[in-house]
Amino acid sequence: MELVIREVAAGDKAAWHALWDGYNQFYESEIPAEITQNTWQRLLDSRSAVHCRVAVADGRVVGFAMIVLHEGTWVTSPICYLEDLFVMAEMRGKGIARRLIQALIAEGKSVGWSRLYWHTAQNNPARNLYDEFTPADEYVRYRMNL
């Protein structure tokens, strides 16, 4: 399998949308169409802090990593938050998520991000993969919808 990790492109819309739907089904979330459309538009806007890398296996988009680059008060270089990581079900177990994370690490080192971080559910089976990169830290997340 030839696997390429690259920035999302306008021509990826249908494939990205199918993955996005699968991602939201996995998390049992319903995202309104206007939010999905806004997210897609931001992914293509070079001025946006939201970016997407896609995994292309044998010419087919099969996964994504959506990130948010932001400033921090303890560092002078950007911080990368990996907000969404997804690989279509039939392509899991082939190292695609690993390659997406590795690509982000390489990109971050190349352009000078200060760190890369993400959150996941305690029972997410992908934690086995995440633990290969770094141990989970001791922080507890508090979340309030406004």
Score class of each variant (00 low, 15 high):
63 G>S: 01
58 D>Q: 13
57 A>P: 02
21 D>V: 15
37 Q>N: 15
24 N>E: 08
47 R>P: 00
53 R>W: 15
29 S>A: 15
33 A>T: 14
26 F>K: 00
17 H>D: 13
55 A>R: 06
62 V>L: 04
55 A>G: 10
67 I>E: 07
59 G>I: 12
45 D>W: 06
31 I>P: 07
53 R>H: 13
30 E>Y: 03
27 Y>R: 01
60 R>M: 13
30 E>L: 13
37 Q>W: 02
29 S>M: 13
54 V>P: 10
45 D>Q: 08
40 W>L: 07
59 G>P: 11
67 I>H: 05
56 V>A: 04
40 W>V: 06
26 F>R: 04
38 N>P: 00
38 N>V: 07
24 N>F: 05
58 D>N: 14
50 V>H: 00
17 H>W: 13
63 G>W: 01
21 D>I: 15
33 A>I: 15
46 S>P: 11
44 L>N: 08
45 D>C: 07
22 G>L: 07
42 R>S: 13
37 Q>H: 11
66 M>V: 13
60 R>G: 06
46 S>C: 08
18 A>T: 11
52 C>F: 06
23 Y>V: 10
63 G>Q: 03
53 R>M: 12
43 L>C: 08
53 R>P: 01
41 Q>P: 02
18 A>C: 09
31 I>S: 02
42 R>F: 04
67 I>T: 15
25 Q>W: 05
16 W>C: 02
